[in-house]
């Protein structure tokens, strides 16, 4: 009936559970740092961290996504050593040290089976504003267009809006053009990768992503006839380019400083180029 052994069993269970929990509760060692922020920068930072820690086995660098804002917030409250942002800081967010690490071109992509390869900026604007709704109007097959945009607040979206959605729009008295609004029925995804996956599986879809993430299943549109290549990006001929930022709260020290130096060094920049970004230096 009433068994002592079963209550001892419960006790044993908890002891085992406690033992299985992390062996120490000490804060991680001093050489460990965290990077957090933009999901656009994340894959590149992961790669850099992987290579850096291979050369410096004593350093430990963990890379988090979460988005530019989460990264900025975490950096302000010193939860992470380095924040990553793919958008410019708002006036309230200024005060952090901003370190541009690379240029990133935003490429307009379509499914590889889609024959359309060239668009003017105005056509791209109309596609995303919902004014052009059929591929026929762009010289493609008679098929509806499924535009895919990014969520409000995304750095990629902000750059696209600033460079493409304002094309040919009337200017106000300050000389600033108001961007056309995105079509409300456009699909919204929250990462470059998921935009690419949808475009790769749907011949009617069109989206925009970091040009470094293009693979063989999708094709980049020549915007105004210009392809996003290193030469056109550096010369500024390709129209949609932004910077990736590292952020620190005050001057970086220790591992964070060494890692930033590595990223800006020739070999760090070369790695970024290999992964599809364009070097800043």
């Amino acid at each position: 009936m009433i068994t002592h052994s079963s209550s001892r069993g419960l006790a044993r269970l908890f002891v085992v559970a406690a033992l299985l929990l992390p062996l120490g509760c000490s804060r991680a060692s001093k050489t460990a740092i965290t990077l957090a922020g933009s999901t656009s920068v994340e894959p590149f930072a992961e790669r850099l961290a992987e290579l850096y820690t291979r050369a410096h086995p004593d350093a430990e660098i963990s890379v988090q996504g979460g988005g530019s804002s989460a990264g900025i917030r975490a950096c302000q409250s010193r939860i992470c050593a380095i924040g990553m942002s793919s958008r410019e800081l708002t006036p309230e967010e200024k005060g952090l040290v901003e370190i541009p690490i690379a240029h990133d071109a935003i490429a307009l992509i379509v499914n590889a089976r889609n024959p359309v390869r060239v668009m003017t900026l105005e056509q791209a604007r109309d596609v995303f504003a919902g004014r052009i709704r059929n591929w026929k109007e762009l010289g493609g097959p008679n098929q509806r267009i499924t535009p895919i945009t990014r969520e409000e607040g995304s750095g990629t979206r902000a750059s696209f809006e600033e460079k493409v959605m304002v094309a040919g729009m009337p200017k106000d008295k300050d000389g600033k053009a108001n961007p056309a609004a995105f079509a409300p029925d456009a699909l919204v995804q929250d990462s470059n990768g998921s935009v690419r996956e949808i475009v790769a599986s749907d011949p009617a879809a069109i989206g925009y992503i970091s040009s470094g993430l293009i693979d063989e299943r999708v094709a980049a549109i020549l915007l105004g006839g210009v392809a996003p290549t290193e030469a056109t990006i550096r010369s500024g001929r390709y129209p949609v380019v932004r910077q990736f930022l590292f952020l620190t709260n005050g001057e970086a020290t220790g591992t964070a400083k060494a890692f930033i130096e590595y990223v800006l060094s020739d070999s760090g920049q070369r790695t970024l180029t290999e992964e599809g970004l364009t070097r800043i230096k």
């Binding site: 965290t34 894959p43 963990s62 890379v63 990768g193």
Partner: peptide, 27 residues
Amino acid sequence: SSLLMPKSLFDPARTMAVHFYILAREG
């Protein structure tokens, strides 16, 4: 969502479910 091996309670970590989500979603 850090992919490093967690060594203490204060380390960030990525669970299998999150890893699956990221792998699938980011393609």
